[in-house]
Design a protein around this nucleic acid. Structure first.
Lengths: 218, 218
DNA sequence: GCAAAAGTGTTAGGATTACACCCATGA
DNA sequence: TCATGGGTGTAATCCTAACACTTTTGC
């Protein structure tokens, strides 16, 4: 803000929480093996120390270099600031958390990446468990309020069935009451006005029953 | 996050938006004269460069040193991260914005401070106008969802009349539709469960009409 | 008593949820 | 034709907003 002081510079990182829906409908996060101390070799969120850049540019750098994800396929949103004193064994640090949303294909990551379902994550270093929790909450809030997030999560085309399942999983993962309702979902989607039903329908892999409407974005 | 890179350290500041309600019911912000370049001598939000500390500690430092406010009387909340490339003439910087809520008496500030109503602010340096806008929006959202914020803004005792006026002013300032409703406010306050009506009533200064119920916090 | 403002009773409207029932498909 | 799941029609419920009317005060 001012420039007069000579305080020691803060250690600021940007941590990305890459969230996506697997084929089975489960919410997943892409983690990476840490290449440096502390916690070298452990699984953690992709994160980088910030330089003199925008936080969103640091986030794309983290995706590219830490888990081999092409940032152009990821929709990024703010997910909070984390600076609890004990979050880093090196001392006081601050993390800007970013939610990253995309498709399984684009977010599953490269060589140093590991995909994990949100339920049953291993112990994670720093406060990454809390960061993931915040990002899941953010995603759940944004699903039907931010069209770009919805599109990134559901893909260019999706079925009513998928939309219901995704909302349900997100509410579960966020610890909210599950309000997803298959019988009213078509009306809800129409009311949003973001997407339109195509004249095509689709059954889930090996499924039976009446096929679900396929939607596309306006 | 990792420590391997040698990127140039980011310039990170914490800017506080001290918001309070004046006696006439208008929403005010406390600004300070900048003592250093850039924009030396101009009015701006109290802000400091972050050291290796928690952002909340930097915020209390900003309140104490820039506008002479006792931080112990202020309730602090996150109001977003600002890092637009052109926000600072010195180059890319990042600001962590904090909303500060308290009473007029505690927030009006000391020697270098100037209180300004939210409507009709002078031109401000950096992106401080946008930061104030975000903080006002945050305050409006938190008024009836965060008891500590409500208490900090309304004080230890308040009247139904005050509560209605405050909500109305906040909605105005945040550009939201004004939903404050005098005739339903008592029911709304009772439903919250945060405060209880005392057996006392009070008239506004020189006012007439039926006196309003005085409330206290549970 | 009169004016002014707080507060109550009550209702209207809208949004959400619930659920019975019908429809489309694979086997 | 049956099992399976999607979708529609419609009713129940809840919440909010609105407003007429009553109450409490100063003058």
């Amino acid at each position: 803000m001012t420039g007069e002081q000579t305080y020691e510079q803060p250690l600021v990182s940007v941590d990305v929480v890459p969230l996506w829906i697997a084929g089975d409908g489960a919410l997943h996060v892409t983690l990476g093996r840490r290449l440096n101390e502390p916690f070298r070799g452990d699984l953690a969120l992709p994160g980088v120390l910030m330089g003199r850049e925008r936080s969103i540019d640091a986030a794309t750098r983290a995706l590219r270099t830490k888990v081999g994800i092409d940032p152009s396929a990821v929709t990024l949103r703010d997910a909070g600031v984390f600076d609890a004193p004990e979050r880093d064994p090196r001392g006081p640090t601050m993390a800007i958390a970013k939610l990253g949303v995309g498709s399984q294909r684009d977010l599953v990551g490269g060589e140093h990446a590991e995909a994990h379902p949100i339920h049953g994550l291993p112990d994670l270093p720093f406060d990454h468990a809390a960061v993931i929790g915040a990002a899941v909450g953010t995603l759940s809030r944004l699903l039907w309020t931010d069209p770009a997030v919805a599109r990134a999560l559901l893909g260019p085309e999706f079925t009513t069935r998928t939309a219901t399942a995704v909302q349900s999983r997100l509410e579960q993962a966020a610890g909210q009451p599950v309000r997803a309702d298959a019988s009213n979902m078509k009306r809800r989607l129409l009311a949003l006005g973001w997407c339109t039903p195509t004249d095509r329908t689709a059954l889930p892999e090996g499924g039976t029953g009446r096929p679900s409407t396929v939607w596309e974005w306006v």
